[in-house]
Simulated assay, not measured.
Amino acid sequence: MAAQHRILTAIWHMLTHDVAYHDLGPDYFDHKPRSLQHQAQRARRLIAELIEQGYDVSQLIPEHPA
């Protein structure tokens, strides 16, 4: 479903802005600039996954987040 959404979004953008398709690269979504809020949410989610797998993450969690 997500892939279909991305395809439709690309088509909409091309038709709306009258531009040709431009491939953003295979790792675009991995390195796409994100908001600080999104980065914090992602960090919490990844830490929760590590805890679920039994890792000790006490050294990874800052006492005073920047």
Rank of each mutant, 00 (worst) to 15 (best):
54 G>C: 06
25 G>T: 09
20 A>E: 06
59 Q>K: 01
33 P>K: 00
54 G>K: 05
62 P>G: 09
44 R>A: 15
1 M>K: 07
20 A>I: 02
22 H>W: 02
47 I>D: 01
46 L>A: 11
59 Q>A: 14
48 A>I: 03
60 L>S: 01
23 D>K: 06
65 P>S: 14
30 D>S: 14
33 P>S: 02
28 Y>N: 12
14 M>N: 07
39 Q>S: 08
30 D>A: 13
5 H>L: 15
42 R>T: 13
55 Y>H: 13
6 R>N: 10
43 A>F: 12
24 L>Y: 01
9 T>D: 10
34 R>F: 01
13 H>V: 05
34 R>K: 15
41 Q>W: 03
60 L>C: 09
24 L>G: 05
43 A>L: 11
11 I>P: 00
12 W>C: 09
51 I>G: 00
48 A>L: 09
52 E>S: 09
10 A>D: 11
43 A>W: 01
44 R>S: 13
22 H>I: 08
45 R>Q: 13
33 P>R: 02
63 E>V: 02
62 P>R: 04
52 E>Q: 13
40 A>H: 09
64 H>C: 13
55 Y>G: 00
62 P>K: 08
66 A>E: 11
29 F>N: 11
63 E>Q: 15
9 T>R: 13
24 L>W: 02
25 G>L: 07
49 E>N: 04
45 R>D: 07
41 Q>D: 15
43 A>I: 08
16 T>C: 08
21 Y>N: 11
56 D>W: 05
25 G>C: 06
8 L>R: 08
24 L>E: 13
44 R>I: 09
12 W>L: 04
61 I>Q: 05
16 T>W: 10
9 T>W: 03
40 A>T: 12
37 Q>N: 11
22 H>F: 03
7 I>Q: 06
38 H>Q: 15
49 E>V: 06
48 A>D: 15
3 A>P: 01
46 L>P: 01
59 Q>V: 07
27 D>H: 10
56 D>C: 06
43 A>Q: 07
54 G>S: 06
48 A>E: 14
65 P>W: 10
14 M>C: 15
61 I>A: 03
34 R>N: 08
19 V>K: 11
17 H>Q: 10
5 H>Y: 06
15 L>E: 05
58 S>R: 04
7 I>D: 14
15 L>F: 05
42 R>K: 15
4 Q>W: 13
19 V>Q: 11
9 T>E: 14
13 H>C: 06
64 H>E: 11
65 P>Q: 12
9 T>S: 14
45 R>G: 03
23 D>M: 04
55 Y>P: 00
35 S>H: 03
51 I>T: 10
42 R>P: 01
56 D>F: 02
31 H>D: 07
55 Y>E: 12
53 Q>L: 12
4 Q>M: 11
29 F>K: 02
25 G>P: 05
18 D>P: 00
51 I>S: 05
31 H>Y: 07
49 E>H: 00
22 H>P: 01
4 Q>F: 10
55 Y>I: 00
27 D>C: 00
64 H>L: 10
30 D>V: 07
54 G>L: 06
8 L>G: 09
36 L>A: 12
2 A>I: 10
35 S>V: 08
46 L>D: 12
23 D>H: 15
1 M>C: 11
35 S>G: 15
24 L>N: 09
43 A>R: 06
1 M>A: 14
55 Y>L: 05
1 M>E: 12
